Computed example of a mutant assay.
Amino acid sequence: MNFKVEKRVGVKATSERIWEVISDLQGWDDWNPIETGVSGTIAFGGTLALTEAVPGLPDRQVVGRIGDWQPSGQLLWTEKRGWLFQSTRYYRIDQLEPGSCIVANGFIFSGFRGEGFHDKHRQILRAGCESVGEALRLRAEAG
């Protein structure tokens, strides 16, 4: 069973512009309030390394494997967080019309321990996703 926390935000920018912000991994330090020090390669089977600093949770080092990506569409990576616990982090861009998109970012937790983590921290994670969504919106709309 999967447990999801997601925030969706409207962005007045093209899907290409939003993807430009998301795919510039080194630039995340300039806008992303919870994921910093990002390095890696966006490619099938590629890896991302970053520091996850969700307010209210301890900072942690993440090494995730790219699970799926599509230019101007989505970026998704997975991480085995321990015994019976896996997480997926994602950004998804849905273009409504040229220059207007909905961007979702969230976490999906699976496994027995994933359920407990989700239940205990869902409000903190939701606030983190809200701050990321707003920061991404501002960065993309700034051009």
Rank of each mutant, 00 (worst) to 15 (best):
G37H: 06
R89P: 02
A53M: 15
E115C: 12
A43K: 11
R92T: 07
F117A: 03
G46K: 07
G114L: 08
L50H: 10
T14L: 06
F112H: 12
K7R: 14
L136Q: 04
P55W: 13
A104Q: 07
Q70F: 07
I34D: 02
S15Y: 11
L96G: 08
F112E: 14
D30K: 15
R113N: 11
K80C: 06
L75T: 00
I102V: 11
Q86F: 07
V9H: 10
A53I: 15
T88R: 14
G27F: 04
R17M: 03
W77R: 07
S110A: 12
R17Q: 04
R139E: 10
R139P: 02
A140I: 09
E16F: 13
I124C: 11
Y90C: 01
N105Q: 08
F117I: 07
E97P: 00
P33W: 07
I66N: 01
R17I: 03
L76T: 10
D24Y: 02
V103D: 00
I124G: 09
G27R: 13
E35S: 14
Y91S: 02
P98D: 09
P71V: 07
G40L: 03
E20W: 04
N2P: 01
Q74G: 09
T88G: 04
S39E: 10
S39G: 04
A13Q: 09
R113I: 11
G45A: 04
V63I: 10
G128T: 14
L96C: 09
L84K: 08
G67I: 03
H118C: 01
E130S: 15
S15I: 09
E97D: 09
R92D: 01
G133W: 06
G73I: 07
G99Y: 03
K7T: 13
W77D: 01
I93W: 01
I66M: 02
